Amino acid sequence: MRPLLIALAAIVTREALRFARQRSRFVSALVRPLVWLVVFAAGFRAALGLSIIPPYQTYITYETYIVPGLCGMILLFNGMQSSLSLVYDREMGSMRLLLTSPLPRWWLLFAKILAGTAVSVLQCYAFLGIAAAMGIKMPVMGYFYVLPALILGGVMLGALGVALSSFISQMENFAGVMNFVIFPTFFMSTALYPLWRMAESSMLLRDICAVNPFSHAVELIRFALYGQFNGMALLWTALASLVFLALALWGYDPGRGLMQRRG
């Protein structure tokens, strides 16, 4: 057990040091959701009326509705960026060397995902603090209840990024795949619009959003911020996390790095 904890601490420390040196990464992670919160929400407020839907007990502003979705945006973008660094590490040889160590492969990948999740959670709390300063406040206990939801959502999206990176050999290719995955995942979810609003325009779009794992991660965060438990969202987020972790484990070969390099 001790070697596993040492490896976990080393990987988390390395990710933290990299994050500390890249201050622009922290700023950019906050700029994206703040643009939606300040600019787009002001324009959509009048056009999008929101009914009383769980977990809300009264009518809410559009800015209040999208805060959980913007936390999900931070987790999504940071999960992909963390996986991009994994591609870089693999090209430079450090990750390949790590994967050939005697430690279990699944633990090394999980440690990498957990390290990226820790950075994402820190960014989410910074965003929630800025939103509170702007007058968009959640119940006080919600800031504590949301921590497990943020961690689980971060692990799910980090595992998705790692699974994608296992089949991509060059950083340039992964950057293109990131855009192909991030934007459909984000926009076809409940991050910006409730399901009933999407159903008014397209039932197909509504069904796609309903099965999107990112939607369930957002709803898990949304309910947790108001001190409520969403069992269905928890179940599907946990299942998606296990599936993505299994794909990541299957995709990485401990001796050579990528499955596509076999043979």
Rank of each mutant, 00 (worst) to 15 (best):
144 F>I: 14
96 R>S: 03
234 L>F: 14
41 A>L: 03
208 I>F: 02
179 N>Q: 13
149 A>T: 02
147 L>K: 01
1 M>W: 06
45 R>E: 15
19 F>K: 02
213 P>T: 09
238 A>M: 13
57 Q>R: 10
65 Y>L: 04
69 G>F: 12
207 D>G: 02
125 Y>P: 01
136 I>P: 02
111 A>Q: 13
153 G>V: 01
180 F>L: 15
27 V>D: 03
262 R>M: 14
36 W>E: 03
46 A>H: 12
186 F>T: 04
210 A>G: 07
179 N>I: 11
125 Y>T: 06
162 V>P: 00
185 T>Y: 04
225 L>D: 04
256 R>Q: 08
91 E>G: 02
203 M>R: 15
105 R>W: 01
26 F>E: 08
216 H>I: 11
135 G>E: 02
102 P>I: 00
34 L>I: 13
31 V>M: 13
245 L>G: 10
1 M>C: 09
118 A>T: 11
200 E>G: 14
238 A>H: 05
184 P>W: 09
137 K>C: 06
142 G>C: 06
255 G>S: 06
256 R>Y: 12
8 L>N: 06
205 L>M: 07
72 G>I: 09
8 L>Y: 12
221 I>L: 07
215 S>H: 05
233 A>G: 10
93 G>Y: 03
35 V>P: 00
148 P>R: 07
204 L>V: 13
30 L>E: 06
250 W>Q: 06
144 F>A: 14
120 S>C: 06
165 S>P: 00
129 G>I: 09
189 S>R: 07
214 F>I: 03
159 A>N: 05
185 T>P: 11
41 A>Y: 09
76 L>K: 11
45 R>Y: 00
213 P>G: 10
142 G>F: 03
76 L>I: 13
254 P>W: 05
139 P>H: 08
216 H>V: 11
108 L>N: 09
255 G>H: 04
263 G>M: 14
9 A>V: 08
101 S>G: 05
20 A>H: 10
67 V>Y: 03
81 Q>F: 13
92 M>A: 10
165 S>D: 00
179 N>V: 12
195 L>S: 07
6 I>D: 13
91 E>S: 11
125 Y>L: 12
37 L>E: 09
11 I>K: 12
141 M>H: 07
53 I>Y: 11
239 L>V: 15
243 V>C: 02
57 Q>D: 14
130 I>M: 15
39 V>G: 07
259 M>H: 13
122 L>I: 14
37 L>I: 14
197 R>N: 12
122 L>Y: 06
161 G>Y: 03
78 N>A: 10
114 L>E: 00
178 M>K: 08
160 L>A: 10
